Simulated assay, not measured.
Amino acid sequence: MEQHPQYVPGFLDKPEFDRDFAAREQIEQRLQLLDSIVEQLSDTKVLLDHDNYHNSISFYRNVRFLSGENVPGTNVIYEDMKQFFVASPDAPLPPQSTETNNK
């Protein structure tokens, strides 16, 4: 429209179009920034999920061991937790810590 103003229809409000176009560019820049922030937060969440999962397994394995050793109070905890750590037949269990392997 800038290069060929003679073809802009009279009913088209060119200044309004220009304002809308400028606003759209500003929104696009903000969306790109937000996309970057969302990606960074998502990546951070994945790392935290990984840490939490492995720490939970370590805790569960320790409670399972203590329950097997008949440490008072651990059997109830083990029974409550074991439903969340059912091994899938397809998925191998994560490696156990060396402390548990030596027992």
Results as ranks from 00 to 15, higher is better:
E2W: 14
H4Y: 13
P5D: 05
Y7M: 11
V8W: 03
G10I: 05
L12P: 00
D13H: 08
K14Q: 13
E16G: 07
E16C: 12
F17N: 05
D18W: 02
D18E: 14
D20E: 08
A22E: 15
Q26E: 15
E28F: 07
Q29S: 12
Q29T: 06
L31S: 09
Q32Y: 06
L34Y: 11
I37A: 05
I37T: 08
I37D: 06
V38R: 09
V38S: 10
Q40W: 01
K45Y: 04
K45N: 08
D49I: 01
H50D: 15
H50E: 15
H50Y: 15
D51S: 07
S56F: 05
I57H: 04
F59N: 04
Y60L: 01
N62G: 13
N62L: 15
V63S: 00
R64N: 07
F65R: 15
F65M: 13
L66T: 01
S67V: 00
G68Y: 03
V71N: 01
P72F: 04
P72T: 05
N75T: 12
I77R: 00
M81E: 01
F84H: 10
F84K: 03
F85C: 00
A87V: 09
S88F: 01
A91Y: 05
P92T: 07
P92R: 04
P94S: 14
Q96E: 14
T98Y: 01
T98V: 09
E99H: 08
E99I: 06
K103C: 13
